[in-house]
């Protein structure tokens, strides 16, 4: 059992490594820890935003999506959406939003935990965190598509607006509104975390593989 655990955790850094040489172990530690921290911070920032512009809204309308909530001109956008039979934004991704904070926090902690795993298993712990932005975008696309294609056929403007899929990123046009969808700070942070994790795992492997091979 102890052997199996040791096989999972991998070798410790030999005590005889001089201080000047220890940075090679610290580099992946710093990269992975930074990634975990960035991911935690991202929970508190919006991941995505869509702005809608129309002549009668000179300041535009904006909706921001956080991992656990929707903010911005939600009431006004819902009010407009009811004309075309789109469901209220609050109904989208309810399960995802309920568990997102806990899930992303756990994933970030796993990434931090990978710092202490010096074998290949470290990758298994850290890679879920690397997938966060892609999972977010995939889920967003699913809901945009789900909402856009399932319009209430009895809505006031159902005859003039065909079902549509709003773009996940980039520009779109719906009735008199031009829309612009862009990543927001949270998604940038998550992407940065992804890059840091991949680079971090690379240096992690380079640092510890010789130790593992020595065993």
């Amino acid at each position: 059992m102890a052997n199996k655990l040791q096989g999972f955790f991998g070798p410790r850094i030999p005590a005889e490594v001089p201080e000047a040489e220890r940075w090679r172990y610290r580099l992946p530690t710093i990269l992975l820890a930074t990634a975990a921290i960035l991911l935690i911070i991202s929970i508190f920032t919006p991941y995505w935003r869509m702005t809608l512009n129309a002549p009668q809204y000179p300041k535009g309308l904006m909706v921001q999506i956080y991992v656990n909530r929707v903010e911005g001109d939600v009431a006004e956008i819902d009010g407009l959406n009811h004309y075309i039979g789109m469901r209220p934004l609050e109904e989208a991704g309810q399960v995802e939003r309920r568990f997102a904070i806990m899930a992303i926090s756990s994933i970030a902690l796993l990434t931090a935990a990978a710092i202490f795993i010096h074998t290949k298993w470290a990758a298994l712990l850290a890679l879920p965190a690397a997938s966060v932005p892609f999972v977010f975008l995939g889920d967003l696309y699913y809901w945009l598509r789900n909402f856009g294609l399932n319009l209430d056929p009895n809505a006031a403007l159902s005859s003039s607006i065909e079902p549509f899929v709003p773009p996940v990123l980039g520009t779109g046009i719906i009735a008199q509104f031009s829309t612009l969808a862009l990543p927001d700070w949270g998604l940038y942070l998550a992407f940065t975390a992804t890059v840091l994790i991949i680079v971090g795992l690379y240096f992690h492997r380079r640092a510890y593989k010789p130790l593992v091979d020595q065993q």
Partner: peptide, 8 residues
């Protein structure tokens, strides 16, 4: 390693 760190 130093170089790689800087690049990162």
């Amino acid at each position: 390693f130093y170089r790689a760190g800087w690049i990162t």
